[in-house]
Computed example of a mutant assay.
Amino acid sequence: MKHSFLFDLDAKYVVIFLFFAMLLAINIGYRVGVKKTKTDSDNSGILSSLLGLLALILAFTFGMAGSRFENRKASLIDEANCIGTVILRTDTYPDSLKNAFKKDLAVYLNSRIAYFESDRDEEKINAALRESGKTSESLWNRTSLCSKDKDLFLPSNMMIPALNSMFDSATTANMAYNSNVPEPIVYLLLFFSIIISFYIGYSSGFKKKIDRFYILGFCLLTSVVIYITLDLDRPRRGSINTENEMFLFNDLKSSL
């Protein structure tokens, strides 16, 4: 599991710090700008360009976070479908083998659910991965052994590709869950927001006038959008998660 100062820190604390840092930067910029004389040229055009650049970086980062969120949802749906296919194909075996397959699949399914619902408990995550790996090996060994029996060749011939797809989809889902927006981009967004705030304050100071309502709205809305961006990029916590897709995994339990 990924660890870093920014990623380990809760998104709401990051945004609270950003909000007050932006207000402070505006205040400093205003104090610097108010000392300037009117002989300086009006730099409102440059400020508009900087605001446009901030909007571009914000949209780019939000798009990356949204894309990763959609990938996580799609990978969960795909894995649930693959597990469902394997469960259905156990019916092609005799009852004794079918029950053995379903017993292992129940353990495998529970371990996959535990992996996704372990929040940031690294011990639980690793335990779930070990359990699913052990059960995967058991399922594969049983299928390989059955494929050597001419009476079980046909069902095993259908089960082997289904198991391959199930294992591959689990790997894809694990990678999707651990895929995040590169931290340098997030740091760029945070620092650029503060720098832009300084220039907004500077421009207001140059004009000897500051619109507190506009300033507060800018800082608040920027912070809210950045919070949503960070929340999208943190699948194991936050209000935007894949809870709906996890119902698919829980529904599969009724088939076992």
Rank of each mutant, 00 (worst) to 15 (best):
M1N: 11
K2P: 11
H3K: 11
D8V: 08
Y13T: 04
Y13M: 00
L18D: 03
I26F: 01
I26N: 08
N27L: 12
G29Y: 04
R31F: 05
R31T: 10
V32D: 10
G33C: 04
K38H: 08
K38D: 14
S41N: 10
D42M: 02
D42R: 07
I46K: 12
S48Y: 08
L51M: 15
L56F: 15
A59P: 03
A59D: 05
F60M: 10
G63R: 03
G66Y: 10
E70A: 12
L76G: 13
D78T: 15
E79L: 11
A80Q: 06
C82S: 14
L88V: 13
L88M: 14
L88H: 12
R89Y: 15
T90H: 08
D91P: 06
T92N: 13
P94R: 12
D95N: 14
A100E: 14
A106D: 13
S111K: 08
A114K: 11
E117M: 12
R120F: 08
E122S: 10
E123V: 15
K124G: 07
I125E: 09
A127M: 10
A127V: 12
A128R: 07
A128Q: 07
R130W: 00
R130K: 14
K134A: 14
S136F: 08
E137K: 14
S138Y: 03
W140Q: 09
R142S: 04
R142I: 04
S144F: 09
K148F: 11
D149N: 15
L152G: 05
L152P: 05
F153M: 14
L154W: 07
L154C: 00
P155E: 09
N157K: 14
N157I: 12
M159K: 13
P161L: 07
A162E: 07
S169V: 02
M175H: 13
N178T: 12
S179A: 10
I185R: 00
Y187K: 04
L188Y: 09
L189H: 03
L189C: 00
I195Y: 09
I195C: 09
I196G: 01
S204M: 12
K207F: 05
K207N: 11
I210N: 06
I210T: 11
D211I: 05
R212D: 11
R212G: 05
R212I: 15
Y214E: 06
Y214A: 10
T222Y: 02
V224S: 02
V225G: 00
V225K: 00
Y227W: 06
I228K: 01
L230F: 06
D231H: 00
D231Y: 04
R234W: 02
I240G: 02
N241C: 08
N241Q: 12
T242Y: 08
E243W: 00
E245P: 01
F247S: 14
D251H: 10
L252M: 02
K253H: 11
L256T: 03
L256M: 06
